[in-house]
Amino acid sequence: MGRERIFNAGILLALLLVPLIAWKMDEPFLITLATKVTILALAGVGLNIALGLGGLVSLGHAAFFGIGGYAMGILASHAQNYEPLFSWPFLFEGSNQMPLIWLVAVVASAAAALVIGALSLRTSGVYFIMITLAFGQMLYYFTISWSAYGGEDGLSIWVRNEMPGVNTLDPIQFFAVTFVILCLTLWSAARVAQSAFGLALSAARQSEERVETVGLAPFKLRLMAFVISGAITGLAGALFADLNRFVSPTMLSWHTSGEIMIFVILGGVGRLYGPVVGAAVYILLEHFLGGISEYWQIFLGLLLLGMVLFARGGLIGALLGREVAHD
């Protein structure tokens, strides 16, 4: 455990230092890149609770990412156009306040995860993958045809949303906001993994009948994991939309689900910091190899293949070895 802690601290430190140095050197693009890594890592941390801890291979997490994104897009577009979102039971004109947007994003994606999870978790294995994919694609096509909010073209927000006490237009300040959220989420995820719920959920992944035999219902545990997982990914979606000041159906496409899953697998399934490492490597590859060839994903594919074949624990597993049974 000691070695992994030091490694994790190093990862966080690097993620913090790169944008700070970029800020000193006046390289705003690098800050944006680091912010992107942070937000995508957050989405991965969300998926990792379902995938790593619960063993739920969801290929539909783009739905939650997108719901978070659209929560931001819808609230902010009404606010910027001064069009009331609804006038009953009280007048609500949308909002450009991040805390409120986050709250709506989390609640909406958690609610969606509750419904999708309640239906999908009756299946398992390949069927679960397919049904989560199907739900994701349903929402994807819904947003394409949702002309009120831009349809296929998506929604642009002119000015990044506000946060009390922070100038979010300043890249380093917005980065700081996302970094704090990531750290808090990682801390919470670590607590959850060691909690009674985490123990039971992890046991349900390893042996379903064991959990049933001690009188705990795997379905409830998994549903709760799926909801928590969806809510975190939804929060990441709202931040991602704010980073780009743009939301579009692409956020909900199954490519996005695949990318989030790649972060987790690349870094290490079930490793707390796996998605952070995975997202960082992914974005670095995209940036540097993408500059050399537009077919950079061939190299990503090779890396992923190597990981899956030779290092089942992802990059962290390859570097640090098998996870120690912690207590």
Partner: peptide, 20 residues
């Protein structure tokens, strides 16, 4: 074995306290 003890308690929805 703690998992068993947890089952005997009948609920496993504590999210933040270290079960061990």
């Amino acid at each position: 074995v703690v998992l068993g003890a947890l089952g005997a308690r009948g609920r496993a929805f504590g999210l933040f306290r270290n079960v061990m």
